[in-house]
Design a protein around this nucleic acid. Structure first.
Lengths: 205, 205
DNA sequence: GTATTATCCGAGTGATCACTCGGATTTAAT
DNA sequence: ATTAAATCCGAGTGATCACTCGGATAATAC
């Protein structure tokens, strides 16, 4: 379909354990150079060298530099999603909100260097597919939960819009603090303010 | 002081009308290539060629590619600030909030291609100084205004923190829509939701 | 009108980069 | 044991890029 699409995805999936380890090593090398020196220093030659594999091997699995970071972003997305949906599953909208804000900030703080670098140095077109995937996993999940508790919510004309809106408010605000004032991620005021802001708008009380 | 600082600023200010026009042409060329083809295609050679000046002339005023986009970002920041502070100046917190949200969204929508490209394709280190400058112009202005109307605000422990927090909520949310769902910038629901969200948290009533 | 400064030019340079390809080596299949 | 498939190798290639420099031309100062 889209010919450019292939440039940001794996060229071939590793099947043997040996090649799985190779791909892992390449991604780890890419992450290390990205966080340590920056995207501009992460040439395919350097990534391969630091990973201890030859440049030819890198191109066996990745069509180019962007695909390496696309795959890296994809795997980070899976890790992020796992954190957000980890136990214990909250049972009320209020606890769901608290859980969501707390774990999201926690994930960003714990992976700050890589998170910021992926967000600010890697060209968006290389990673936007991977970003989209996480959102599409999460939004329906959140919508289903809220639908079960509609009576506890403040009435809004367009619940779907408001839900997505608040999700973006939360993630983009945390993103902004991560980029421009990362120490605030450890400030309880930030977590409290976000919960309070969203809670008083979304929840009935 | 910081030796790397010089890499993102003008090397020399144009003094004659001729050279002012030259610098303008370079910046316009950079903006055109950035929005049309992307940052990767905006080499210094190409920027100079499209601007109708020689590569030597470009380096007379800019120490490198990043400085071109740093200056471009700076000028966009000035334009943005001018829009935010344009007449009529609101007199109540509520109208101030409405004015701020409305004009901000309007600016982003009207300059979408350049806004998004600067935000997602140009490396942050090249433009973060310019970004910071606008914020530092605006925050004290907003704080002063709110201090004059404290009685109309909901009581908060830390007004400074809340003000900055809400500013970030607004700008980062609009930013997120600009990048990921740009058509929503014309949806009145977005403006209304932002005003409502922030208003009900900040204002007394 | 002379000197000084500002502006502009563009071929050339050295470095870097993404990517290929022919073939070696290892693993799996039969 | 033989074949087939997967994996790995790395020197080499062509292109691109950021940036310099020596000097030409134009504006300004005196």
């Amino acid at each position: 379909m889209n010919p450019t699409k292939d440039r940001y995805n794996l060229r071939k999936r590793p099947s043997q354990a040996r090649s799985v380890a190779t791909v892992d090593a390449i991604l780890e090398s890419a992450a290390r150079i990205l966080t340590g020196q920056g995207y501009a220093y992460a040439s395919t030659n350097t990534i391969a060298e630091q990973a201890g594999v030859s440049i030819g091997t890198l191109y066996e699995y990745f069509p180019g530099k962007e695909a390496v970071f696309g795959e890296l972003r994809r795997r980070e997305g899976f890790r992020h999603y796992a954190v957000l949906t980890k136990e214990p599953r909250p049972t009320t909208p209020r606890s769901m909100l608290e859980h969501l804000v707390t774990t999201h900030i926690e994930y960003v703080r714990d992976n700050l260097a890589l998170y910021v670098a992926l967000e600010t140095e890697v060209p968006r077109y290389a990673i936007e597919d991977a970003e989209q995937a996480v959102l599409e996993d999460y939004v329906p999940l959140s919508n289903a939960f809220l639908a079960m508790h509609r009576s506890e919510l403040r009435p809004h004309n367009n619940v779907e819009f408001i839900t997505e809106f608040l999700m973006r408010v939360m993630s983009s605000t945390v993103n902004d603090y991560a980029l421009r004032s990362p120490t605030s991620l450890s400030d309880p005021q930030l977590t409290d303010a976000l919960i309070d802001l969203i809670g008083s708008y979304l929840l009935d009380n």
